[in-house]
């Protein structure tokens, strides 16, 4: 799915400069917890989040997130936009809630990042081994 289509589906706005709307988005994920993003994001992922501080962009950079949507009409501070422009990560805004923004894209066929299950399983196993060891 191209970023331009994403923009239409969420009825959103572009908030950073020089955004290439032809950019291909492979999957999506929503989180406000940056450690979750680091754990389940995959290269090529679109991130939906309600957080707007610059660390969201840093997290995106490290995790290979290719574009960020701020949900519920939240606008990021200038530092966040500046860092995103420097790193070439497009920023979009949606007036819908996290649930609806994700839901619209999922319904339109944008797949979910599949890593999440793998990570959950790993954590579960850690818990289990802790229990049996204790």
């Amino acid at each position: 799915m191209e970023l331009g289509e994403v923009l239409q589906i969420i009825e959103g706005k572009v908030i950073s400069r020089d955004v290439d709307l032809k950019q291909e988005i492979q999957m999506g994920g929503g989180a406000d917890l940056m450690s979750d993003v680091l754990a389940f994001a995959q290269e090529g992922m679109l991130l939906m989040t309600g957080l707007t501080n610059p660390q969201v962009v840093r997290t995106a950079e490290m995790a290979g997130v290719v574009a960020i949507i701020f949900v519920r009409s939240k606008l990021p501070p200038p530092e966040t936009i500046a860092l995103a422009e420097e790193k070439g990560i497009p920023l979009l805004a949606s007036r819908h809630t996290m649930f609806e923004t994700c839901g619209r894209l999922y319904k339109a066929g944008l797949p979910a990042s599949s890593l999440f299950e793998g990570v959950l399983k790993q954590w579960y196993e850690t818990f289990e081994s802790k229990k049996s060891g204790a």
Partner: peptide, 28 residues
């Protein structure tokens, strides 16, 4: 090392970190 264990103050949590996933993430 336990997933979910955290001593993070509120300001860190507000920034999207401090949920006790950092060290487990590093490990994975």
């Amino acid at each position: 090392m336990q997933p979910g264990f955290s001593t993070a103050p509120d300001w860190v949590r507000e920034l999207g970190f401090g949920a006790g996933m950092g060290l487990p993430n590093i490990k994975s």
